[in-house]
């Protein structure tokens, strides 16, 4: 094999091994360790100077205690379930908001489309943190939304929205909306208009042509968009901690607090491993879906 090629392969390969795969091994190892009052705060630590016997002793001290702990304390169960529920519900909401926008874009006059595209992409380049922060001022009790609703007379008392799950839903829909719009727009834009004409010629009304032709053909985009919203929403940390309240349980937030506030590294690592297991199924499904799409396009 030519040495230059080997060199070219080795650099990114070793980089990813050292900074992506090995760290996961470490997380897994620490999740099997015990919490201790030490620096670093877990036991056992691997001491290579003791040789093979030391390594065996090290292995024998690892156990699944932290995972048992996760199943026994219902905080973690509740956090996993409520993360799932929040992620599913906000994905559906994002789809309901995003589809009409993507549809409108795909049917807009040709000369508008580059501008509309740019208007969808622009928020994506803007800081995520700022976009979440913008809603804190809107949703608070004396916030813009309440002032507006009080002024119109729709409500008589200010609503409590900030620090509830509703605010978390709004935050997720708002920040992940471009991820939903773009793949759906991409499939709708390629949709052959003559299929719709054919459906109408064959006696479909415009509405039923939409349901029978447009919706089924947009499925690949809808599926891609849903995965792109669901996967990051499940492990979300910023949105629940800024917009959610003390009652908002999401696993990303639990992991953060376990690590930074409780300084319990082994439990935080175990929470991370379980979150990863929870995500592996949707990630593999998404990969399969993308591969199928690519094959279909070729």
């Amino acid at each position: 094999m030519n040495p230059r090629r080997t060199f070219l392969i080795l650099i990114p390969y070793l980089w990813l091994l050292a900074l992506f795969l090995v760290p996961f091994g470490i997380v897994f190892k620490i999740s099997l360790s015990d919490t201790a009052l030490a620096i670093p705060p877990y036991l056992p630590t691997l001491d290579l100077s003791t040789g093979w016997a030391g390594f065996r002793e090290f292995l024998s001290e690892l156990d699944f205690e932290n995972y048992v702990w996760l199943t026994e304390d219902d905080l973690y169960w509740k956090a996993y379930l409520s993360s799932l529920q929040i992620a599913v519900f906000s994905t559906v909401l994002t789809l309901l908001v995003g589809f009409p926008i993507a549809y409108g874009m795909a049917n807009a006059p040709d000369q508008w489309r580059p501008t509309l595209m740019m208007l969808v992409i622009l928020p994506f380049w803007t800081s995520f943190l700022i976009r979440v922060y913008a809603w804190m001022g809107i949703l608070s009790t004396e916030g813009f939304l309440n002032q507006f609703l009080l002024w119109t007379g729709i409500i008589a008392e200010p609503l409590t929205i900030l620090n509830t799950n509703t605010a978390v839903y709004i935050g997720i829909v708002y920040t992940y909306l471009p991820f939903m719009i773009l793949p759906i727009y991409a499939t709708l834009e390629k949709l052959d208009a003559s299929l719709l004409e054919a459906a109408e010629d064959l006696g479909c009304s415009r509405t039923s042509a939409f349901w029978l032709v447009t919706i089924p053909l947009s499925r690949p985009g809808v599926i891609a968009g849903c995965f792109l919203v669901f996967i990051p929403a499940l492990g979300e940390f910023v949105i629940p901690s800024l917009l959610g309240g003390s009652g908002t349980l999401m696993i990303g937030k639990v992991l953060w607090e376990e690590f930074f506030s409780n300084r319990d590294w082994p439990v935080a690592s175990a929470v991370a491993v379980v979150l990863l297991l929870l995500l592996i199924v949707p990630i593999i499904l998404f990969q399969k879906h993308q591969e199928k799409q690519q094959e279909a396009e070729q």
């Binding site: 996961f24 997380v27 492990g235 990303g252 992991l255 953060w256 690590f259 979150l275 995500l279």
Partner: peptide, 8 residues
């Protein structure tokens, strides 16, 4: 998820 990448 970023929390996992960061932690690891």
């Amino acid at each position: 998820p970023e929390v996992i990448t960061g932690l690891s």
